[in-house]
Design a protein around this nucleic acid. Structure first.
Length: 591
RNA sequence: GCGGUCGUAGUCUAGUUUGGUCUAGGACAUCAGCCUGCCACGCUGACGACCCGGGUUCAAAUCUCGGCGACCGCACCA
């Protein structure tokens, strides 16, 4: 049974078809097959690597080139402190117990919560303490009443040691975001200390999933694109909002979800903000951009939606979160990006843990004149009295609010600081005028975060089509892994040499162009369609006479004839989306 | 991690029930040659597989145990 025949059957879904094609044509496959394989790891082949790069470059185009987001690249492994500070160490380790009788597994902290122990308490307990508490409350398996084994912590971060000393714990990053927060200070300097600004990092992340499934959808090592956008919470306006305010976002709201209803509410970006469905302008802007990105990857708007996350579904750092989902053939709605309002959580956490200053300075539009009381100890008088303790007295005095000192001096002529009495003649109280020109604050963050492997998968699935029993991968032209195939009609009479020259010329013009001379011309077209090659240039006998070629469109199978010398300019326009296929030459009537 | 189903060339599969005739068959793909004047033509040839390891047996693709992997369900998914 041939693969095409099988895939025309209804029970053969697109996931199976796409995965089979991907393996056969080298888009991707699961890694380490010669050693029996290992779940959750994937290898991208020649076509897949190119497609993935094109998708990642779409992100760069959309965010880096068009709106000036900065890009950075940092390490996958980070010292333990980074993820302790970020809260991941706490949130990634869940104590679990297994029933020795029925093998059911339960979250130990949840079992304890039922006995009135708060989750905060449970989180702090050691495994021994958890075991003790479980025994003390006589907690047994809720399913069968069987006894529990030893509690164990399940860690979904990959743990390692840095260097030869086992004390130095390191973790594989489960998201790319933390690198950005950790490097905030330098990034902010590089951004010339102006808000708002954003930084994107596209790179691998690691999550030690219990059981990775669903091919590219859930991997243990995957590519994530985290964009952290920093802004002043007092100036939350998005200057690009005008470009997207009429974009319609289909959102499945919390309220709707709680009614166990799956209906989305269609709102424009403007409405979503006016009705406070989305709290933040930048977040709404990025959601609109995310929708447009998916459209450009070939996923129509009606196959996308946003889900507002419920309180208990949200990450520990987020106040409002939406997931962007795409409808796929096999599993229904699958998350492709997350949009979280992280407030100042991350910068504040790292500031607290590291002691580094993560605040930024903001100048007021108008300086504020401030008059304040200043208490200055007169050391010339304190010194002779308190001798060696004079400095200490002065320090203690500095801790007392100036107004309090002034009041005491006016009432009693002295003030007690601990056991020391300071008299009014020992201090100099004055009113000082100062000009406050600005303030320091921690920026807020909205984060769009894309799963690149999932973007890749949905692009493949939506490109997958069957035309006359043949697979045609109809990628949008901007992400096609191969832009042009160049084919001699026959591998003789100099047609092959001519085709080679054209391929070479196009490659030098910057196109991804491939030469193929084996098999019949029809076979080569079919092969190219399956790889998603956007255009086919065929060199025939007329080419030798008049220096023209035919260009074949992968999707319509139509052909136009055009002069070789015009190819570079025409193709550049075509791939930039400035020209349609039919504008590339004179349409040839189908034979 | 549990339960179910499953694992044969690049891909899809026949064979497994009932161990031997399997030196493992086919289709498609790939490569070489011939042919071929625009959509997987044809012919000839080539390449190429029983997931890994133990056990039972005279004999294992087939039975059995363990491992690994895949899919589905449960759980998990910041």
């Amino acid at each position: 049974m041939g693969s095409e025949a099988k895939c025309s059957k209804p029970e053969c879904d697109k996931f199976v078809a796409v995965n089979e094609l991907a393996k056969r044509r080298g888009f991707f496959w699961s890694s380490f097959e010669i050693y029996g394989g290992s779940g959750g790891f994937v290898t991208y082949g020649p076509l897949g690597t190119r497609l993935k790069q094109n998708i990642e470059n779409k992100l760069r185009e959309l965010f880096v080139k068009k709106i000036g987001i900065y890009e950075m690249e940092s390490s996958v492994i980070a010292p333990g402190k980074v993820f302790e500070a970020s809260g991941h160490v706490d949130h990634f380790k869940e104590p679990m117990v297994e029933c020795q009788n029925c093998k059911g597994r339960f979250r130990a902290d949840h079992l304890l919560e039922e006995k009135g122990i708060s989750s905060a308490e449970a989180e702090k307990m050691t495994l021994a303490e958890i075991k003790e508490e479980l025994e003390r409350h006589g907690i047994v398996c809720p399913d069968c009443g069987g006894p529990f084994g030893e509690p164990q912590r399940f860690l979904t971060m990959f743990e390692t040691t840095i260097g030869p000393y086992s004390g130095a714990v390191g973790y594989g990053r489960p998201e790319a975001a933390q690198n950005i927060f950790v490097e905030f200070d330098r990034l902010y300097t590089a951004a010339r200390e102006r808000l708002p600004f954003g930084v994107i990092q596209i790179g691998h992340a690691l999550r030690n999933e219990i059981s990775p499934r669903q091919g590219l959808i859930r991997l243990r090592e995957f590519t994530i694109a985290d964009l952290e956008f920093f802004f002043d919470p007092e100036e939350p306006c998005c200057r690009f909002l005008g470009e997207v305010e009429n974009e319609v976002l289909p959102i499945l709201l919390c309220d709707t979800r709680l009614k166990e209803c799956e209906d989305t509410t269609d709102v424009t970006v403007r409405e979503a903000l006016d009705r406070k469905i989305i709290q933040n302008e930048w977040q709404a802007f990025f959601m609109a951009q995310a929708k447009r990105l998916l459209v450009e990857l070939g996923v129509p708007a009606e196959k996308q939606r946003f889900i507002e996350k419920l309180t208990w579904e949200k990450a520990h750092y987020s106040t409002q979160s939406f997931d962007q989902e795409v409808l796929v053939d096999r599993w229904g709605w699958v998350e492709v990006s997350g949009h979280a309002y992280r407030t100042d959580f991350d910068l504040a956490s790292h500031m607290k843990a590291s002691g580094a200053d993560m605040t930024v300075y903001k100048e007021y539009p108008n300086p504020v004149e401030k008059e304040e009381l200043v208490v200055k100890p007169i050391m010339a008088k304190l010194g002779p009295i308190y001798k060696g303790e004079a400095a200490k007295v002065a320090a203690l005095l500095a801790k007392v609010p100036a107004q309090e000192v002034t009041d005491a001096m006016e009432k009693q002529g002295s003030i007690m600081v601990e056991n020391y009495q300071v008299f009014s003649e020992q201090v100099d109280i004055s009113r000082q005028k100062t000009t406050v020109r600005g303030t320091r604050f921690i920026p807020h963050v909205v984060e769009p975060s894309f799963g690149c492997d999932r973007l890749f998968y949905v692009a493949l699935e939506y490109a997958y089509g069957i035309k006359e029993d043949r697979v045609v991968m109809g990628f949008p032209r901007s992400i096609a892994p191969v832009q042009v195939g160049v084919y001699p009609l026959m591998g003789k009479d100099g047609l092959d040499t001519k085709a080679c020259q054209i391929q070479n010329m196009l490659a030098n013009e910057g196109f991804m162009a491939e030469f193929d001379e084996t098999g019949s011309i029809g076979r080569r077209y079919a092969r190219a369609d399956e790889a998603g090659v956007q255009l086919g240039i065929t060199v025939d006998y007329d080419t030798l006479k008049e220096d023209t070629v035919t260009i074949r469109d992968r999707d319509s199978w139509q052909q136009v004839r055009t002069a070789i010398k015009d190819l570079p300019a025409l193709l550049h326009d075509y791939f930039y989306g400035k020209k349609a296929f039919k504008e590339l030459g004179v349409l040839i009537k189908s034979q």
